[in-house]
Nucleic acid binder design. Structure first.
Lengths: 341, 341
DNA sequence: TCTTTTTGGTTATTCGTTTAAGTTAAAATT
DNA sequence: AATTTTAACTTAAACGAATAACCAAAAAGA
């Protein structure tokens, strides 16, 4: 069933080179000969073997995406964006999930580096990227980071405007008269730090003291959408609601939101009367709750697209230039007002 | 940077064959020689070129997944399951999204067939698989279908127990006293037909007449999680609520649920007092609504795992047997009682 | 001691392409 | 008519590994 170029050549009565030239249009061939070749191709149902082609050409037309937590819909949307963009350029997506585990991430990256991808997009499990620097050192492949910035490692990165987004959210709460605003995050990484900075700036600009008790994080270990429902964030929320005079909660990402909102629901607090609530990361389900939940929407699909573009761009550039400068691209967030504040 | 086996061999002072034998353990080598080779490997930071290896071995260690709609979280979970299972066996996932478009699906499948994957898992866009049969005819690659059965095409398929699941849901509604139960589906395909059969059986067993007006479907064209919120299903729901005496709605999949529930919310109907509501497909957000929404949970991750297993199994079998029998595996659904009924 | 077996390698072919470098006959130029 | 150019191919050498077939030296058996 799987026919090779050799058999096509034989059937058409030409050399394999001619078949290749016809198929790739890389050299002029007499129309008559071309027809014979094409007919043979059809008759044998021939398809090029990409392995052979890629081996020869030194490329695989494959882009790897090593994702920290593929069970999180935020990253699924990023993957969606990447796939969409790659498809347009004839590249394909090779996906590996690190399941928020560093060792798995290292394995995945090693696999990708050895594994014949032309470029690599990484949504890292943590900001500690010393091991990544080592791994990726003197590696000629374009590498793009998305969602989290690797510390001390110069490379292309696609991030949301975390600081501004958080600032917008908290500012809106303040404008509505809130001063006792809690910050709940799933865990403190570079991205979360930026959101915290936005939170701080909004408070400080309005001369509202920052209360360290109001700032809480979930575990630093592996977390998942599922386990968070009654996880550490849930308990922090419960503590804040029970023992502190907070009137509003800013949940700094979708993982935290699951914990925070589960708690708010179960304690039967009225939103926004008893407690105002706003979250980073939008999703369709935020309109299904009563009331609907206000959000700072990231655009993960766009982030994926941009990351893919960046990777492809570097791929083309790398032919001509050896050294290139690294970009940090920010995808802007969008404030979405809903009934929860 | 990218060193080949040749350079390793040269540095170690042996032939490339020896290097290969050491690396694969395919032949006995003197410990002393082995050490020299391994040292050279380390020194040159050598990694096998999978393209070359695969070309030679005639395999790619890649499994393709052509998914009908990757923006739907149901399929994202399937992908998750597939990836998990493949990772265990040293295979990797190549993902292509058909975006519910037949032409894209055909392109994707062609790409995969030509594209050096060892097996193919397909979540088809529609049940009309005549073109698939053609495409996959006399193709030696294992092909597994998931979520939808291709009509008139014999191959391995992984499906949920759709009939029973729907039956359970509707039976529960009947037991609660409902007789005017609507069936809302996103569109009528083989899977939806099975669910409709379950709905019918439950009604018939309780001698409740099946009212054709109560059975509605969304568009047959491409639909997405997003566009459905105010799409055709929404309008069907509105019509049913306004002009018919229904007391309960069974939403037959997650896409329909978005439309149905959006409508219920916006018309300010009390659930379950005014209208009881239950849906096929579970998701964490169903517990975030007020009240929480009862569901017939599929296990998409498990479906993905099983599909991956099936593909890998056939892959190994195909070495020894030329002809094998096709399996249809059903993953059982689970009824989850929540406040909406 | 002479033959046989085992050990530890090497050589050479193959996988299916692409492509640089040749080749030959026809067309164009002088 | 002799020479150069062009068109249309073909030949052969990669790409990087795996592996069957071969070989020399050492070990074992007789």
């Amino acid at each position: 069933m799987k026919s090779s170029i050799k058999e096509v050549a034989h059937l058409a009565g030409v050399s394999i080179a001619t078949v290749s030239y016809v198929l790739n249009g890389t050299k002029k061939v007499r129309p008559e000969t071309e027809k014979r070749v094409l007919d043979s191709v059809r008759k044998l149902n021939y398809h090029v073997n990409p392995l052979a082609r890629n081996l020869r050409k030194g490329e695989s037309k494959l882009i790897g995406f090593v994702v920290s937590d593929f069970s999180n819909y935020f990253f699924q949307e990023i993957a969606l964006g990447i796939e969409k963009q790659l498809a347009k350029s004839g590249y394909r997506l090779l996906l590996m999930d690190s399941k928020e585990q560093k060792e798995t991430e290292v394995d995945n990256i090693k696999n990708m580096l050895a594994g014949a991808v032309d470029a690599l997009i990484i949504a890292p499990t943590s900001e500690d990227s010393s091991f990544l620097r080592l791994l990726l050192a003197n590696n000629p492949m374009p590498v793009v980071f998305v969602d989290r910035r690797p510390e001390g490692y110069e490379t292309d990165t696609v991030l949301a405007t975390n600081e501004t987004g958080a600032y917008d959210a908290v500012k809106t709460l303040i404008d509505k008269g809130h001063t006792q605003i809690a910050f709940l995050g799933s865990r403190l990484d570079s991205t979360m730090q930026e959101r915290l900075n936005g939170y701080r700036r909004a408070l400080e600009e309005s001369s509202i003291p920052v209360n360290a008790n109001y700032i809480r994080f979930g575990s630093h270990e592996s977390v998942s959408q599922r386990s968070l429902r009654h996880g550490i964030v849930y308990h922090h929320t419960f503590d804040l609601i029970s023992n502190y005079d907070i009137t509003a909660i800013f949940s700094a990402n979708n993982l935290a939101t699951v914990g925070v909102y589960s708690c708010i629901k179960e304690t039967n607090l009225k939103v926004p009367q008893d407690i105002a609530f706003i979250t980073f990361d939008d999703s369709f389900w935020l309109t299904m709750t009563t009331p609907a939940i206000a959000a700072v929407a990231q655009n993960p699909e766009e982030m994926g697209k941009v990351a893919a573009n960046l990777a492809l761009e570097k791929l083309l550039d790398s032919q001509s230039f050896e050294e290139y400068s690294f970009q940090e691209i920010r995808i802007s967030t969008q404030f979405i007002l809903r009934g929860s504040i």
